[in-house]
């Protein structure tokens, strides 16, 4: 009956697990988000367009999405390097550093924001060395990127780590003993295995960074049109009891993020299918 819906498999539990997941998903995520959509819908179309296309809102999208993209990219590159270092090399303090990777999640965002500002302000540990070169981090867009990179750091590291651990080293070693160049091994064996994990990490780091409020607010400066992120605009709307306006901005961010997430996920599914087909 669901033959067209899914490809048959001998594994059990499809109905149970899918049913439970979708039920839970609806209860925790979709119904509350429906409240957001209905609130947005209380605005007329014209109002909605006006709120979403205000120059100030547009400037904030550029900042929020741009900074988030940059932060997620930084995280992908450095996150991979860190994950590689932590799984493949042995050095003193490795285990402790490994355990500290989750800290950006455990620390309340406000604490990260305050601590980063203290470090990168012109009188801070790092800020004082950057200031003579005219590099200002705190209260500029660079500060926003720094904060967003920090809060997204665990995503890439933590999704690449298990994948790297599962890469078949035998295969790798065999390839190398057979004379494959180091870079070829990396490109042909390691990269395909960890690429989905990197993509997942990137997606999540990006998604999280777009909506982040707590840490950015301390380091951003919050000047309208310059260093004002979209979540701050939402808070500003709320301060004026404009729930519909706030919901509209939130909804717009959600749709944009959703489209980006969906395309990355589709790309991954497509990539995997191609891989499977090629493998057979």
């Amino acid at each position: 009956m669901n033959g067209t819906f899914r490809t048959p498999s001998i594994l059990p539990g499809f109905g149970l697990t899918l049913g439970f997941s979708t039920f839970f998903l609806s209860a925790i995520v979709l119904i509350p988000l429906a409240a957001l959509v209905t609130k947005t819908a209380t605005m007329g179309w014209d109002d909605l367009v006006r709120v979403l296309t205000e120059p100030r809102a547009v400037a904030s999208y550029k900042l929020s999405f741009g900074a988030a993209l940059l932060a997620a990219t930084l995280n992908s590159v450095f996150g991979f390097i860190i994950a590689w270092t932590l799984t493949r090399y042995e050095f003193p303090g490795r285990k402790l550093i490994d355990a500290l990777i989750d800290m950006p999640f455990a620390l309340p965002t406000a604490v990260s924001g305050i601590a980063l500002t203290a470090v990168f302000a012109e009188n801070g540990w790092i800020g004082q060395y950057l200031a003579p070169y005219g590099i200002k981090v705190a209260y500029t867009w660079i500060g926003i990127v720094v904060a967003l990179t920090l809060i997204g750091l665990p995503f890439v590291v933590r999704s690449v780590q298990p994948a790297l651990m599962e890469v078949q080293r035998d295969l790798e070693d065999a390839a190398e003993t057979l004379g494959a160049a180091r870079f070829t091994v990396f490109r042909r064996i390691i990269l395909p295995t960890v690429a989905p994990a990197i993509a997942t990490g990137f997606t999540m780091a990006f998604a999280r960074a777009v909506g982040e409020y707590g840490s950015v607010i301390f380091i951003a400066g919050n000047l309208p049109m310059k260093t004002e992120i979209t979540p701050l605009l939402i808070v500003i709307k709320l301060e004026q009891f404009d729930y519909a306006g706030a919901a509209a901005l939130g909804f717009a961010m959600l749709v944009l993020s959703f489209v980006m997430l969906l395309s990355i996920n589709l790309l991954q599914t497509w990539g995997r299918r191609r891989q499977v087909v090629a493998g057979r």
């Binding site: 669901n2 899914r6 499809f14 995520v29 909506g211 979540p231 939402i234 997430l261």
Partner: peptide
């Protein structure tokens, strides 16, 4: 359900699961 089976709308489902990360904490 997602990893062990192939079914239509899988990417969509994964994206729905991702959504809360993309929602601003304020929202």
């Amino acid at each position: 359900s997602i990893a062990k089976f192939e079914f239509k709308g899988k990417s969509f489902l994964i994206t729905m699961i991702d959504l809360p990360i993309a929602v601003s904490p304020v929202i």
